[in-house]
């Protein structure tokens, strides 16, 4: 026996009056970003330059790419803690292939192509493994992805014997260093991924199913949606994104250190998703919001650093912003 339902009248009344929290949770990220840019234009020297833009975009790229996959996972009501470790695996595997340590292929182009495809695919497969744990065994996502969060970095270290791999292979490193039309290559990759994901989430059957599963899993199942397959897919995509981000990181650094590649990335990505306005409980997600969220966090850090605030203090501010964003969401929902 259940309690009588709350009256709908109460809710309607709330919905009709102007909802400040709702407004802030929807546009807060944009407002924050505009304020930050305005502040910097006024107080930070040499802010309005292409260089500043490129520095910020380059730094935020990998976070955004990983956060796109994370947004899809979170939209289904899940979470993926393994992304940082998957970046390390992909980052460790790629140099082994293009330096010819595994398969001696003659042509450097073939080597690089094989390295890129293989390492991203491996990360994608490991993502599918996450999805399999979540969908097939109904393990809580935070626990299921903890498996590879812990094991993944270990695997990467074993693969490389814990050694730093350094290289100078321009045929590969264009992914992090090339600047067609004066735009960093990874910014273009990021833009393409963001656009594709935003389109998919809004306009495709797959996107609609993701949101339905996150919004009400049992209703989705009863409506005939293949819930397990959707979950497999989002974790797989999250793995692919992490794999790609791993390649970009090692390309920029000209080296791959399994200890460091993607370290802490899962938290940066989740933070970007949360600040961007995606519901952490699933069912409501925005890819563009995630992009804005990542940019906001990045710009706060840049602003503080450019104005002489130490990085340690910047971290505290970052935490404050995340707390604020999540709090706003709560108010809106409650």
């Amino acid at each position: 026996m259940t309690e009588l339902p709350r009256s709908y009248a109460d809710r309607d009344a709330v919905a009709r009056s102007f909802d400040l929290f709702g407004f802030l949770s929807r546009y807060g990220t944009v407002i924050a970003l505009v304020l930050l840019v305005a502040f910097n234009l006024a107080f930070t020297r040499n802010f309005a330059t292409m260089q500043t833009l490129n520095v910020n975009l380059t730094q935020v790229c990998t976070i955004v790419i990983v956060a796109v996959g994370m947004t899809l996972v979170i939209a289904t009501g899940g979470i993926d803690l393994s992304v940082g470790s998957l970046m390390a695996i992909s980052g460790a595997l790629a140099p082994m292939i293009f330096l010819g340590k595994i398969l001696p292929i003659g042509s450097i182009y073939l080597n690089v192509a094989a390295a890129m495809i293989m390492s991203v695919l491996v990360a994608g497969l490991l993502g599918l493994f996450n999805g399999w744990l979540v969908a097939r065994f109904r393990i809580q996502p935070i626990v299921a992805t903890l498996v590879l969060f812990i094991a993944g970095r270990g695997i990467a270290q074993v693969m490389t014997n814990g050694n730093l791999q350094t290289f100078r292979v321009p045929e590969f490193q264009w992914i992090g260093l090339a600047r067609p039309l004066d735009i960093p290559a990874q910014v273009i990759i990021m833009a393409v991924i963001v656009a594709a994901a935003a389109w998919a989430l809004k306009k495709t059957l797959f996107g609609r199913c993701i949101l339905a599963v996150g919004g009400n899993e049992r209703a989705s199942e009863l409506a005939g949606i293949a819930v397990s397959r959707i979950k497999l897919a989002v974790y797989g995509i999250s793995g692919l994104c992490a794999g790609l981000a791993g390649l970009i990181v090692i390309a920029i650094n000209s080296s791959s250190d399994a200890n460091l590649v993607g370290l802490g990335m899962e938290l940066d990505a989740i933070a970007a998703v949360a600040v961007g306005g995606t519901l952490l409980s699933g069912g409501k997600a925005t890819i563009v919001g995630t992009l804005l969220g990542a940019l906001t966090i990045q710009l706060v850090r840049y602003t503080l650093l450019a104005n002489g605030v130490p990085d340690a203090a910047a971290l505290v501010v970052k935490a404050g912003i995340i707390a604020l964003a999540v709090w706003l969401q709560q108010q809106h929902r409650g």
Partner: peptide, 27 residues
């Protein structure tokens, strides 16, 4: 297990119909 509360009337109404109103996966 009926409505998806965060979704719109249109999205809820077409939830089971989705495969039939999409072409090559695009709605």
């Amino acid at each position: 297990e009926g409505i998806v509360p965060e979704m719109t009337v249109a999205e809820n109404l077409t939830l089971a119909l989705l495969p039939k109103i999409s072409r090559n996966g695009v709605l």
